[in-house]
């Protein structure tokens, strides 16, 4: 199966409460909390489109859009 490719990774800053769940459970350490304790996607090149950050976000602040890549 072709790997999914990241199109966009959007974090609604106003909704993020900085709990750090997305940061802790990202399998590729893509996310960080910034100095305002808001999640930011720092290393998007490493994102594998698993969407676990989006699914576990208790603030519903993350939207990951992927497209099916062609090999």
């Amino acid at each position: 199966m072709a790997k999914a490719k990241l199109e966009s990774h959007h974090i609604e800053r106003e909704w993020c409460k900085g709990c750090g769940i997305c940061v802790a459970f990202c399998p590729k350490q893509v996310l960080e909390l910034d100095r305002h304790e808001k999640a930011v996607a720092k290393r998007l090149d490493d994102c594998i489109c698993c969407k676990l950050c989006e699914m576990r976000c208790p603030d519903l602040a993350i939207q990951v859009t992927c497209r099916k890549g062609s090999e």
Partner: peptide, 26 residues
Amino acid sequence: AVRDYLRERFFPHIWCPGCGHGVVLN
């Protein structure tokens, strides 16, 4: 999209940072 099922006018929600109930809603 998931957000289309939300009443966005009530966001951010009142639950505490890290509250599991947000994950259940999600």
